[in-house]
Nucleic acid binder design. Sequence first.
DNA 1: TCTTATTGACATTACAAATGTCATAATGAC
DNA 2: GTCATTATGACATTTGTAATGTCAATAAGA
Lengths: 150, 150
Amino acid sequence: MNHLHQIYQVIWQSRPLMQAAEAAVERGLEGSGLTVRMRAVLEILADGGAATVPDIAQRLEIKRQYVQLMINDTHAAGFTEAVPNPRHQRSKLIALTEVGQRLITQVMQREKELLKRIGGDLPDGELGITLKTMQQLIARLKSATEEKTP
Amino acid sequence: MNHLHQIYQVIWQSRPLMQAAEAAVERGLEGSGLTVRMRAVLEILADGGAATVPDIAQRLEIKRQYVQLMINDTHAAGFTEAVPNPRHQRSKLIALTEVGQRLITQVMQREKELLKRIGGDLPDGELGITLKTMQQLIARLKSATEEKTP
DNA sequence: TCTTATTGACATTACAAATGTCATAATGAC
DNA sequence: GTCATTATGACATTTGTAATGTCAATAAGA
């Protein structure tokens, strides 16, 4: 297998990897009352604490309008609530409710256990190389794409 | 960075990698008259020769009904044509036209050059490890997801 | 031959996400 | 402090990818 073909392979394995990962997450959500997109919001909030809709959009790298829809869902389900934002009157902070906190903690715990089962035996060094390589490819692809079209 | 977090990172870098790769492909298609999904079909045909719609679907791992739509596009654009299939009366083989052949060859050549610019300096060994790791993760995620739900 | 599977063709639905728009409200420059 | 600019929420529309559903015609296999 030559060099170019190897790079090609690595790049295009990203799609099946992503699909497999998302399917696994979806599977783990069964019966929790969460959808994948609700989970994405809860994870952000669990990791970084309460945030505004535009903040969440930025972290998820999607448009704020779409995040609004997600938040509508999580609010309706009682997993999040709007709390006053000291730094902004209109733009409330979105915070986990107690129920939401408990749920996302449990979901993330289960995912952690899955990760352990799945990759517990992969050598640290190889994971590090993999991560580094993927990140380099991402950075270079991005800059090549943006080249001369800012 | 602990082990689990490393695996987590690798898995979730697959989405940005895929997005960056697709954006790069899209960029390279500008002005060619090809869309991303037309390109996918032409690539399959260029690699494996003429094939039926269900064959193509299987290789792309998507439903045949969706491939039909792609083929409609490529036929309409004159990049592919239906030729008689010795092994099946109704299910014609989809083949590249001369124009299609020339176009996909050129597109793939340009992509190859981009790959060279992007990853030419990545060590073979690291690429190999990356590919292996990604494939292991895919396989394990898949089997974990299918577990007890065949 | 007869039953079953495959195929093409077309319609419907689902989902993620982008984009468009508007009124309101917050911020920053002056 | 006023005024222009920007940010936000709320809602509507559109796009792209793909899955699903359905049906008639046809091909393959028992």
